[in-house]
Simulated assay, not measured.
Amino acid sequence: MDIVDVPRFRRSLERTPALVERLFAPSERGLTVRSLAARFAAKEALVKAVGGPTGFRWHDIEIVTDEHGRPSFSLAGTSAARVISDGVAALHLSLSHDGDSACAFVVAEGPERTP
């Protein structure tokens, strides 16, 4: 899980406009600041769910929505390779924003393990 303070995130983007290109895939870049904050929270939550940032490239982690508005990950490059190498079989994503906060919850499923 990760939570982002939207006004603080907005200030970061205003101070450093290049962050948008560094953190987001081309399809995400035209979204509102609230939506970008939620997507950043999703990327951070994914990194936490898998166990650390090694191998992840922010713009290779894209949040897409299906025809019903349900969010999911579209991974490419070293980010996709990292998830596969860690044995992740499925990723589940929930996004939310309310007031000045945006948050994301990620569940990374792997193969069932026996004790």
Rank of each mutant, 00 (worst) to 15 (best):
29 R>M: 09
32 T>G: 14
8 R>N: 02
43 K>N: 06
78 T>K: 15
74 S>R: 14
68 H>S: 14
12 S>P: 00
58 W>H: 00
32 T>C: 05
60 D>K: 03
57 R>A: 14
87 G>I: 13
87 G>D: 10
43 K>W: 05
66 D>G: 15
61 I>N: 07
16 T>Y: 01
31 L>Q: 12
40 F>W: 14
28 E>N: 03
61 I>A: 07
13 L>Y: 09
74 S>H: 11
70 R>F: 03
20 V>R: 15
42 A>L: 04
44 E>P: 01
72 S>T: 04
34 R>N: 07
82 R>M: 11
22 R>F: 01
7 P>S: 04
31 L>E: 08
51 G>S: 09
29 R>T: 01
25 A>L: 03
92 H>Q: 11
51 G>T: 07
42 A>W: 03
4 V>T: 03
42 A>M: 00
56 F>K: 03
71 P>M: 08
77 G>Y: 09
90 A>H: 13
78 T>Q: 14
11 R>M: 12
71 P>G: 11
24 F>H: 07
39 R>G: 02
16 T>W: 03
93 L>M: 08
18 A>W: 06
9 F>E: 02
90 A>M: 14
31 L>M: 13
42 A>Y: 00
3 I>M: 06
83 V>P: 13
28 E>P: 04
65 T>I: 05
86 D>M: 15
60 D>Y: 01
67 E>M: 11
20 V>F: 02
52 G>M: 00
68 H>T: 13
75 L>K: 06
66 D>R: 12
26 P>I: 02
3 I>T: 04
8 R>L: 08
15 R>K: 13
50 V>T: 12
34 R>W: 05
63 I>R: 02
88 V>I: 15
83 V>C: 08
88 V>H: 10
58 W>Y: 10
84 I>Q: 13
57 R>C: 13
7 P>L: 01
37 A>S: 06
34 R>D: 11
47 V>L: 03
47 V>E: 02
7 P>D: 01
74 S>A: 15
26 P>C: 06
20 V>E: 14
78 T>P: 04
30 G>C: 07
64 V>A: 12
33 V>G: 02
34 R>T: 06
71 P>I: 12
66 D>T: 15
75 L>Q: 02
68 H>C: 14
62 E>F: 04
40 F>M: 05
35 S>E: 13
51 G>V: 05
16 T>D: 08
92 H>E: 12
59 H>P: 15
68 H>N: 12
83 V>M: 10
61 I>D: 09
96 S>I: 08
84 I>G: 04
90 A>E: 13
37 A>K: 01
16 T>V: 06
49 A>T: 06
43 K>Y: 06
10 R>Y: 00
12 S>K: 06
18 A>Y: 06
6 V>D: 01
31 L>C: 10
54 T>H: 07
7 P>E: 00
27 S>R: 11
